[in-house]
């Protein structure tokens, strides 16, 4: 499943959008304009871009606390996302969810999730819905290395396996569960090995290589659509920031951090595009300028958006 020029350019564009979005969110946070926690996706863009490039709009995803990249890559409107993380009434969730709880069911996004590992059974349930409804939709569940130690992970993988669900599990292994290094928090060095324990394939790919992510995921998605059951794709990657904005990640080795920064997924992708003659530096800069303008427009929209009405406090507790 080789990646073609337009596909890779789209992935690149997606990664830039995520990066610019996160940079801007970071700025807003540091400027004090953004309430709550902010878990930046910067550094992991190749995973979201590569996975989502394999999906159809009617496929479903279950996201995590570090979910901005997933939403953008699945087609999220950055204006509504920024409004949401600024807590404005125009946001995806009317300002009631915030950064960790952006959902857009119309885009197949079942929601980011504030509880590590909680999205995994939710993604499996969505996979059951896909299977039950007699279509060939798939459900993709994102989680990190940290979540793979949750009971939810194990119970959900088992259920997906015994029911042969069209589920794809994307482990974004950024090597740290908050501040706990993966080589200390679990014994196998690959999370993907755990898939074998539930009787389905686990693949390890370079999570900073969008093409590699795409190819591995495409195989997994095809298998799921065909009724072949679940697959896990473990994407080794790195977050550029701490667990959340404010965490300086002093628990990580600066040398290792530098190595990963040198393998920034955007740089890697730009190199590939250049080496294959698919895009020159000017074209890539043009993409960046275009995205920046879009993000700035979104920031302006969000900042100009009204705060929720106080009466909204009491609405939406129950569905009528």
């Amino acid at each position: 499943m080789a990646v073609e020029r337009d596909q890779l350019l789209d992935m690149y564009r997606c990664m830039v959008k995520i990066r610019e979005f996160e940079n801007r969110a970071h700025d807003l946070f540091l400027a004090g304009g953004l309430p709550g926690f902010l878990h930046l996706y910067s550094g992991q863009e190749a995973v979201a871009a590569g996975v989502m490039a394999t999906l159809r709009p009617d496929d479903l995803i279950a996201s995590t606390h570090r979910g901005h990249g997933h939403v953008i890559a699945k087609g999220g409107d950055v204006r509504l996302m920024l409004a949401e993380i600024l807590g404005r009434a125009t946001g995806y969730c009317k300002g009631k969810g915030g950064s960790m709880h952006i959902a857009a069911i119309e885009l197949g996004i079942l929601g980011a999730n504030g509880v590590v590992g909680a999205s995994i059974p939710i993604g499996v349930g969505a996979a059951l819905a896909c299977q039950y409804k007699d279509g060939d939709r798939v459900s993709v569940t994102f989680f990190g290395d940290g979540a793979s130690n949750r009971g939810t992970f194990h119970e959900a993988l088992n259920l997906a396996s015994i029911w042969d669900l069209p589920a794809v599990f994307i482990c974004e292994n950024n090597l740290y569960g908050v501040g706990f290094c993966q080589r200390d928090h679990m014994r196998p060095c690959d999370v993907a090995e755990r898939a074998a324990g539930y009787g389905f394939p686990g693949i390890v790919v370079d999570g900073n290589d969008a093409e590699a992510v795409y190819e591995a995921t495409a195989t997994a998605v095809a298998r799921a659509r065909a009724g072949g059951g679940p697959t896990m794709v473990e994407c080794k990657t790195w977050r550029h920031h701490g667990h959340f904005v404010g965490d300086q990640a002093l628990y990580r080795d600066p040398a290792e951090h530098a190595e990963w920064l040198a393998r920034d997924p955007l740089l890697l992708c730009a190199k590939v595009l250049a080496s294959r003659g698919w895009a020159d530096e000017g074209a890539l800069l043009a993409i960046q300028d275009e995205i920046r303008a879009e993000i700035e427009e979104a920031v302006a929209f969000a900042l100009a958006s009204p705060q929720p009405a106080l009466s909204d406090l009491l609405t939406d507790v129950y569905s009528d």
Binding site: L60, A62, I105, L110, G111, A118, I120, P121, I122, G123, V124, G125, A126, A127, L128, A129, C130, Y132, K133, S139, G151, T152, E155, A156, N158, L159, I162
Partner: peptide
């Protein structure tokens, strides 16, 4: 029927419900 996996019973039900079941 499910395995003895209350977390998965409940958790998958949330996802299935959100996805239309």
């Amino acid at each position: 029927d499910t395995p003895v996996s209350e977390t998965a019973i409940m958790g998958h039900a949330v996802g299935a419900a959100a996805a239309g079941l």
